[in-house]
Simulated scan of single mutants.
Amino acid sequence: MSIQWKGVMPAVTTKFTEQDTLDLDMFAVNINAQLEAGVHGIVLGGTLGEASTLSDAEKSTLTQETVKLVDGKVPVLINIAEQTTKGAIAAAHTAERDGATGLMMLPPMRYKAGDAEVVAYFKAVAESTSLPIMVYNNPVDYKIEVTLDMFDQLLACDNIEAVKESTRDISNVTRIKNAFGDRLKIMTGVDTLALESLLMGADGWIAGLVDAFPAETVAIYELQKAGRIQEAIAIYRWFLPLLELDINPKLVQNIKLAEVHTGIGTEHVRAPRLPLSGEERAHVLEVIKKGLESRPTLPDYKNL
Rank of each mutant, 00 (worst) to 15 (best):
residue 242 L to H: 12
residue 178 N to M: 15
residue 234 A to T: 14
residue 238 W to K: 06
residue 224 Q to V: 02
residue 263 G to C: 08
residue 223 L to D: 01
residue 214 P to Q: 07
residue 247 I to F: 13
residue 285 L to G: 07
residue 190 V to H: 04
residue 176 I to R: 01
residue 175 R to A: 09
residue 283 H to T: 00
residue 295 R to L: 12
residue 167 T to I: 08
residue 197 S to K: 00
residue 264 I to F: 01
residue 216 E to Q: 14
residue 167 T to A: 14
residue 199 L to N: 02
residue 214 P to I: 13
residue 204 G to R: 00
residue 228 R to Y: 05
residue 231 E to D: 14
residue 192 T to F: 02
residue 273 R to A: 06
residue 218 V to L: 07
residue 180 F to D: 03
residue 267 E to D: 15
residue 196 E to N: 11
residue 258 A to Y: 07
residue 262 T to V: 14
residue 234 A to D: 10
residue 266 T to Q: 01
residue 269 V to E: 05
residue 290 K to F: 09
residue 190 V to L: 06
residue 229 I to E: 08
residue 153 Q to P: 00
residue 191 D to K: 00
residue 218 V to F: 01
residue 166 S to R: 13
residue 222 E to H: 13
residue 185 K to V: 06
residue 183 R to M: 02
residue 160 I to P: 01
residue 201 G to Q: 08
residue 182 D to E: 15
residue 267 E to M: 11
residue 221 Y to W: 05
residue 158 D to T: 12
residue 246 D to G: 03
residue 235 I to C: 08
residue 260 V to S: 03
residue 214 P to S: 04
residue 241 P to Q: 11
residue 278 G to C: 07
residue 253 Q to C: 06
residue 270 R to P: 11
residue 201 G to E: 15
residue 269 V to H: 05
residue 265 G to T: 07
residue 294 S to W: 02
residue 153 Q to K: 07
residue 293 E to A: 10
residue 169 D to T: 12
residue 165 E to F: 05
residue 269 V to C: 08
residue 250 K to S: 13
residue 193 L to C: 03
residue 284 V to G: 00
residue 197 S to I: 08
residue 207 A to T: 10
residue 188 T to I: 15
residue 285 L to M: 11
residue 272 P to V: 02
residue 249 P to A: 13
residue 178 N to E: 15
residue 184 L to Y: 07
residue 278 G to L: 08
residue 279 E to A: 11
residue 179 A to E: 12
residue 289 K to V: 04
residue 162 A to F: 01
residue 214 P to N: 08
residue 203 D to G: 03
residue 263 G to I: 05
residue 186 I to E: 06
residue 158 D to K: 09
residue 279 E to V: 10
residue 272 P to M: 01
residue 268 H to L: 10
residue 233 I to A: 04
residue 255 I to V: 13
residue 289 K to N: 15
residue 232 A to E: 05
residue 207 A to R: 05
residue 282 A to P: 03
residue 190 V to S: 03
residue 284 V to W: 07
residue 250 K to F: 13
residue 180 F to E: 00
residue 255 I to G: 02
residue 291 G to S: 14
residue 226 A to L: 05
residue 205 W to D: 01
residue 157 C to F: 06
residue 272 P to R: 05
residue 170 I to S: 02
residue 186 I to Y: 03
residue 254 N to A: 10
residue 255 I to F: 10
residue 188 T to Y: 03
residue 191 D to A: 04
residue 201 G to C: 06
residue 256 K to N: 08
residue 176 I to P: 06
residue 172 N to S: 08
residue 288 I to E: 03
residue 230 Q to C: 10
residue 284 V to Y: 03
residue 207 A to D: 02
residue 211 D to I: 04
residue 187 M to S: 00
residue 174 T to A: 11
residue 276 L to F: 09
residue 178 N to Q: 15
residue 230 Q to K: 13
residue 166 S to V: 06
residue 237 R to Q: 14
residue 281 R to Q: 12
residue 261 H to P: 07
residue 286 E to I: 12
residue 176 I to F: 10
residue 154 L to H: 04
residue 287 V to C: 09
residue 205 W to M: 02
residue 223 L to C: 07
